[in-house]
Amino acid sequence: METKVCRILDPDVLVDAIRLFKDSAKNYSFQSTVLVKGAFEGNSYSLNGNDHHLLPELTIELSSQEDLIKAYFTHNYVSQLAELDRLYAISLFVKKGYDYSLLNMLLDHVGINYFEGLVEKSMKLIRLDSEVLKFIVSKQFSLKQAFSLCRYDSSFLEWMLNLSFYFHMSSSHFIELSDACYRLSKQSQCDDYNAFFQLECIQDSIASSTNHHFRTSCLREKLLQSLNPVQTQVNKQLKSLASQVSGSMTLNWDKSLENKQIDVTMRLTDDSQCEALSDSLKKSRGIIQSMLDLL
């Protein structure tokens, strides 16, 4: 086991150093092998650890919190991690009350490229409940996907996390279903998520199968229907009308209801069928008109 000395020039920074290294060791798995010992010897502070990459360059003069944290990130190879992991590592510090400008500096330091709103979004993201944050790290969300969750309130995300245990949710499923559930809760003006959980479409989906994948498909479909009552109802009427035409002909339409047109597909195996099909089409005029009226 190696021992290196880190000279801390400011006593206040020293206190922070002990706290930060201890917290990070406790909270973040890649630091779990580091042992931290505090020992006051003038302005010196010794760290013992068996993690080889932490220690070789740790003899460094630190005159501010920023220096200390920069050193921490540098020596822990944070910049080699995935973006979200880097952000997660940063979160361990920023959650403890460090400010906006520090976060800005850290993002830059660990090589997360700046784009509009990055700092604001990062602040929101890293302040999410730690279970939610762990979930999005474990499911390998992209940074963009993770940021898209920042528009939800924390109670909703915790609720979604609980819901996810009943289903199979990849990162993209989680994003899609969060959006759908959130909209549905707002549409139904239900801010009590416990009550929202009892909603028929959710309970029915959970009860639909023991297979998590099947349940998830079921939930997606039921949420879509609940969110789009007009489309669901009109498409049902159109489907019923379309089913009344002859079997050799199928009628299709734009399910979003935007395009006012019916596409007719006819199946011919012999040119002698042309006349019969033509008659079928003529007989279907009323049905086609009714369908167009609905579009």
């Binding site: 528009r151 309130d153 909209r183 707002k186 549409q187 969110l227 789009n228 009552p229 007009v230 489309q231 979003s256 209801l257 935007e258 395009n259």
Partner: peptide
């Protein structure tokens, strides 16, 4: 975040 204008039934057009 307090606005509900995005919550209605909408479709993506052409």
């Amino acid at each position: 975040p307090a606005s509900s204008i995005t919550h209605s039934e909408m479709v993506k057009g052409d």
